[in-house]
Amino acid sequence: MSIEVRDLRLRFGDVDALDGLSFSLAGGKIYGLLGRNGSGKTSLLSVLAAFRRPTSGEVLINGAEPFENAGVVSQICLIRESGDVYDNERVASVLRAGRQLRRDWDSDYAEKLLERFQLSTKKRVQSLSRGQKSALGIVVGLASRAPLTMFDESYLGMDAPSRYAFYEELLADYTAHPRTFVISTHLIEEVASLFEEVIIIDRGRLVLHEESDALRGRGVTVTGPADVVDTFVASLTVLGQQTLGRTKAATIYGELNDTQVRAAKLAGLELGPVALQDLFVHLTRAEAEGIVR
C-alpha cells in the first residue's frame, strides 16, 4: 500500500510531535522508520494507523485518508511496544480476536509462529514475560497479513534468538506474501539489512529518506592535521568533528569521488568508513539539523 504524508502536524498541548512532515512511499517494501526517542516515530505510526487524527496536513494510504475510514483501517495492522495485547486475556483469545477482526488473518501461520516463539495458547497474557508479550505481538502482526503492517519497537524485551527468529519470519513471509511493512527501531545495526528503504525523522521532521543499502559507505571520516582537514572538508557536508591535540577527525556525509580520494591521500589524510549507527547518531544530533536534504 502506498503512503503519502504531506505537511503533517500532530500537536499535543503546545508541543508539535510531528512538525510539518512530508514523504511518500511507493509501498510493497520493508521500510525502516528510524529516530531517537521522542523523535515522533510513534506519533507518525499512530496517525498512519488511524489511531489519531492529524492536527493539520494530510495522510493518504493508497490514496485515501485512513481516519474513521473502515475500508482502509481493516487493511492496516499496527503493533505497538510490548505487543499491544490485553493482560487478562488468554493467548488463545488474542488469536481468536485476530481471526475475527483481521480480513487477511492466517490461523495456520499463527499456530506455526506460536510454536516458533514457544508460546502456549492456554497461558494468560499477564503471566507472560515482557519478551513473550512482544513475541505474541509479533505473531499477531505477521499472521494478520495486513497489506500495511507496522511494528513500533515491537521487539522490546525479546532476547537475541527471538529477535532473529522475528527477522527470519519477517523476510520469509514478506517473500511469500509481498506487502508493505513499516518497522520503527533505534537498533539500526541489527536490522538495517532487512530494510529496502529507511526514513529517518528527528523532532517531528524528515531528516532523510534513502535506500537502506545506499547508506553504507555514505559517511566518511577524514583524519589528519587540523588545518589540512579543515581545508579538505571546507566544501563538504560536515556532520561532526573531534579534535585531539593537533589531530582532527571530521565526519562527512556523502561519497567522495576518485579525485577527492586521491587529493586526500596526497595531503596525507586518512579516510575511514562510518558505521551505520554512528551515521545515524550524527544525522539526528541537534547541530545536524537541515544539513542533509
Binding site: 517494501k29 520493508i30 527470519e168 523476510l171 520469509a172 517473500t175 539489512s193 529496502e196 543499502d213
Partner: peptide, 17 residues
C-alpha cells in the same frame, strides 16, 4: 535471490541488486 536473502537475513531487493 530469496535463498540468499533468507540465509544472510537481508532484504530480497538488496540480494536481487
Amino acid at each position: 535471490t530469496n535463498q540468499y536473502a533468507s540465509f544472510y537475513r537481508i532484504n530480497p531487493a538488496t540480494a536481487a541488486k
